[in-house]
Write a protein that binds this DNA or RNA. Sequence first.
RNA 1: GUGGCCGUAGCUCAAUUGGUAGAGCGACAGGUUGUGGUCCUGUAGGUCGCGGGUUCGAUUCCCGUCGGUCACCCCA
Length: 422
Amino acid sequence: MPEYHTSPGTRDILAPDSTRWRALVDVFARVVERAGFGQIIPPMFEDLGVFLRLGEATDIVTKEMYDFEDKGGRRVALRPEMTAGVVRAFVQHRPLLPWKAWYAGPNFRYEKAQQGRYRQFDQVGVEVLGVDDPNLDAEVIALAWEFYGQLGLRQVRLVMNSLGEPEDRARYVDALRDYFTRNEDALTPESRQTLLRNPLRVLDSKREHDAAVVAGAPVIADFYSESAAAHFATVLAGLDRLGIPYEVRPSLVRGLDYYRKTTFEFVGAALEASQNAVGGGGRYDGLAEDLGGPATPGIGFALGVDRTLLECDAEGVFDAPSRNVSVFVVDVTGGQEALSITHDLRGAAISCDRAYEGRSMKSQMKAADRSGAGYALIIGGDELANGTVTLRPLAGQAGDDRTQISIPRTDLIPTLKRVLPS
RNA sequence: GUGGCCGUAGCUCAAUUGGUAGAGCGACAGGUUGUGGUCCUGUAGGUCGCGGGUUCGAUUCCCGUCGGUCACCCCA
């Protein structure tokens, strides 16, 4: 047993998983950069106050934050999500509107880990500041939808809701509090606790016992102002126009307090676990102002990289791309030839690897096979004397022709350039 | 944070009704001395998660602890 291992809720991601991971981020970047988004790389920790804006009733803030005092006496916290930091960056730099930013990176929450839920977890996402247009809501959702499609996912479902304007939401929360208080006896003790902190979240209860009461609760749609109703209707019409299927679920309330108007969630149909929300987002029109900036509308989403990959596994799509070297150098003359040949090939942009420690040819050939390389480049005593190398096709090459050929050392790179798939 | 289940070689798992453990895969080395992927043989690799208790003796029983997993909570 090793003395040290990863902390709870953290893990190492090795190749080939890391290759797949990066490929997923590449797909995301391609999709959103096509839509005019530029990447932002914000710091992983910020002044604690930035994150307190997420809401005093949320567990993310009250229980799960990695906050600490640094050596200079500053109260800082590892970011528990991306939106607050990105909006802080907006307020700090005041880029031209509309500002479209995308990101990828880890967030930190002190939670008990389970599958699809980690203390350090990665998200990819976008934020757009400065546009109130409901068409943007549809566009942003469509980008996430396109991303899932590019990965090959077909069973992700989109769930839509609107929380209305802040005043609508406030009146709704009051009505909800009244309703649940009247029916308190029928609620589980846990939900009664939640009711005191945040009545909205009672709607999220997964306990069977609460189901009946929750089903009879007031519906947010009845509290929409005219403008909020119109905004939401236009968003849904936009989705219809783009052919993106969705389900409106009035009980969808997301965990962060800053959401208003449009909210949405992507649910992985293939995931059995309760951690089946693979992504989510919404509008946060008041957040920039809360962080000391001008009143600026905003919308964005965050998608969990782990959960998305789990969904890919469940649907059997987006396999790890193989990143093999093209050539494997087998040198049975001591290894000096392999040293210079691999150096030369890499200089000519031909990927290659080799075996070390003067192993037997058999052993080196095994290593060549395992490397996935298309060709073994063999240097023995004869080749060394002749100034040649032997090129042997390995498994995985087109056709069954495994005839090996002898090439003058001087022709090696041109020959490989001709033979290798580019 | 609360509760259920689990923790044996790098990986997937056996076994021991308490007498210090095996297999498959993988790794490494051979199979008449320059050729892999199949096959055969062999070798290495485990303080049976960690600590304490009961016992002549514990990997096996008990307690604690750490880690994993599932549900709740929360959320991506």
